[in-house]
């Protein structure tokens, strides 16, 4: 409804990233349906929105670097690599599941 419209989506964190987000792996969030310029919210917008609204930890560079998710974090849109879906340009839809996975190296 107008500029107040929001989009319900699920955001998940895995591989230790949840430590930056209140130690909680699954977050059901309502994000603005469009970005400040009026374009429909995409994953690029979501990343910034999460930094400003969901990330309590101040170490933003553990999540974003140079305006996008940092190297070593995979982004999955409904369980598919975001590179298959248009990366940060992917326009979010109601009920989407966006999973951020920090790559592990231990063994």
């Amino acid at each position: 409804m107008g500029e107040e419209a929001t989009l319900p989506i699920t955001v998940e964190f895995s591989g230790g990233l949840e430590l930056l987000f209140s130690k909680q792996k699954t977050h059901k969030v309502q994000i603005p349906a469009s970005d400040p310029s009026g374009k429909p919210a995409n994953v690029g917008f979501l990343v910034g929105w999460l930094c400003d609204n969901l990330m309590v930890d101040k170490r933003k560079d553990m999540f974003v670097m140079d305006g996008t998710v940092r190297n070593g974090i995979l982004v999955l849109i409904n369980d598919a690599d975001w590179e298959l879906e248009g990366e940060d340009e992917y326009v979010l839809e109601k009920g989407d599941n966006i999973l951020f996975v920090s790559t592990l190296h231990g063994g």
């Binding site: 230790g16 560079d61 553990m62 670097m65 940092r70 190297n71 070593g72 974090i73 995979l74 690599d81 920090s102 790559t103 190296h105 231990g106 063994g107």
Partner: peptide
């Protein structure tokens, strides 16, 4: 192909530092 660029070294955590549960690994 999956990870064209390595993660910043400061974000890499080993099992010695971060811990590991035996049955998980």
């Amino acid at each position: 192909c999956i990870w064209p660029n390595p993660p910043p070294a400061s974000t890499v955590t080993s099992c010695g530092e971060g811990g590991i549960l035996g049955p998980v690994v």
